[in-house]
C-alpha cells in the first residue's frame, strides 16, 4: 500500500502520542497509585451510625502526620461539620452516605468523588498549605443541596 510521505509522518506522530498517553496512564496507575474512589468497600446504609468507624466520624491518626478521616454525608451536611488538620498531613478520606447519593468535592484540590449509600468511597490528599478548605456537595440531593458543606482548617 502506497502512503504519502506526509501521511507516514502524521500517522507516526499519532502512534507516538498514543504510546505517550498509555505510558503516562500506566505510571499514574501503578507508580503514583491513582485509582477510582470506589474500591468495593460496603456498609449497611441503614446502620451507618452504629457501624465503625462511622459511629464516630472524625480524624484518626494512623502514622507520622498521616490520618484517616472517616466522614458521613447526609441531607444536608457532612459529619463532622468542622475538621482541623495539621499542615502537611496526608489524609485518607473514607466517606459514605446515610441516605441518597451525594458529592464530595474540595475546590482547588483533586478531591472530587461521589458518595453513595451502601458504599465507602476513598480518596487521599496531602494538605501542604495552611488555610481553610470547603467540602461541597456536587450531586443534586434535595432542596437544601446548595447549603450542604463542611469546613477543613489546615494549620
Amino acid at each position: 500500500m502506497h502512503l504519502h510521505k506526509y501521511e507516514k509522518i502524521w500517522l507516526s506522530l499519532g502512534g507516538l502520542a498514543l504510546i505517550a498517553f498509555l505510558v503516562v496512564l500506566g505510571v499514574n496507575a501503578f507508580a503514583m497509585g491513582s485509582h477510582p474512589p470506589s474500591h468495593m468497600a460496603y456498609v449497611d446504609p441503614t446502620k451507618v451510625d452504629q457501624t465503625a468507624p462511622f459511629d464516630k466520624p472524625g480524624l484518626v491518626q494512623i502514622g507520622d502526620n498521616e490520618y484517616d478521616l472517616n466522614m458521613t454525608a447526609f441531607v444536608f451536611g457532612y459529619g463532622p461539620a468542622q475538621i482541623e488538620i495539621p499542615k502537611g498531613a496526608k489524609v485518607h478520606f473514607n466517606v459514605t452516605s446515610k441516605d441518597v447519593a451525594h458529592g464530595f468535592s474540595i475546590p482547588g484540590t483533586n478531591v472530587n468523588m461521589m458518595v453513595l449509600p451502601g458504599h465507602v468511597n476513598s480518596v487521599t490528599h496531602t494538605f501542604d498549605q495552611a488555610g481553610e478548605f470547603l467540602i461541597l456537595c456536587n450531586e443534586y440531593c434535595g432542596v437544601a443541596h446548595h447549603m450542604m458543606m463542611s469546613n477543613i482548617v489546615v494549620k
Binding site: H2, H4, Y6, E7, W10, L13, G14, A17
Partner: peptide, 20 residues
C-alpha cells in the same frame, strides 16, 4: 499519486494535533 499535494492537510493535522 506523488503529484497530489497534501501540504495543507499536513499543516492542518499538525495544528489539530498540537491543540489536542
Amino acid at each position: 499519486e506523488e503529484e497530489s499535494s497534501l501540504r495543507g492537510t499536513f499543516v492542518s493535522v499538525l495544528i489539530l494535533g498540537a491543540l489536542i
